[in-house]
Amino acid sequence: MMRKVIGIIVIIVGLGYVFMSFDFLPVIGDSTAPAHTHVSDYYIENALRDTHSPNLVTAVLADYRGFDTLLETTVMFSAGVCAVMILGSKSHIRNRFLVPKKILKGKPEPGVSAYKTVNKDVMVTLIAIMILLYAIYVLLHGEVGPGGGFQAGALMALSYIVSMMIAPDTRPLFSLSKANAAALAGIGVFIYAFTGLLTVFNGGMFLEYGRLPFPVSNEYLHTIGIMLIEVGVTIGVMATIITILKAIIERVRFDDDRD
């Protein structure tokens, strides 16, 4: 009862917002609003000169505010570690979620007639690899078009998930245990942080790509720097998603499992 009352109070407060006229917020689409005239204009006008990246979101994300993205990857990594720690203890088999047997009949393998249908076969052998290829394209292309490390990592994890869902007992494209995946996520974060540390040891500020210790021109240094951190983000995100998935899936009981 108390809960309903509090809820209704909250909803009334929420409706209170509706009856306010939002005078303090700018009109949507107004290009003279303060939000568009101060920092944002600088980014649009100078991004190409400063970062050599035509994708402005990448320029802001990976260069101007690159430190935020390091923390973003850290958030992912810590979510993975937390999931592993919380689900770390051995659970009693009786307590696990039950999944009906019919989902997993026998031990099918790609190309064997146990599959009964060609679709799954195509999924595992073709689509998973295509997703992986697409992920690499998104990763490499992220600087000039929409895309980037996070999306690439999510796609790579997706290809892993696809092969795991279709044929859980077969070997997926690449196999990772829960502990290895978590460690890999940490290495992804470290690649990112290490890129920053390289610039620090070379006399620049943290993540100042112009100071990376590679013998190429300034333009390429920014490209290399952004690429390095995108690789770090990709590894971190991919490994974290796999970690969380594995940690949760270990607790699921299939009814042909034995103690």
């Binding site: 850290t74 502990a179 460690a183 996520a185 940490g186 290495i187 470290f190 942080a193 620090v200």
Partner: peptide
């Protein structure tokens, strides 16, 4: 002049490497 950043980043790097090093 780098200390303000390094104070935060060092524990972060330690945390990132911890799981991989524990394997060794």
């Amino acid at each position: 002049q780098h200390y303000p950043a390094l104070v935060v980043i060092l524990p972060l790097c330690g945390a990132a490497l911890s799981l991989a090093l524990t394997k060794i």
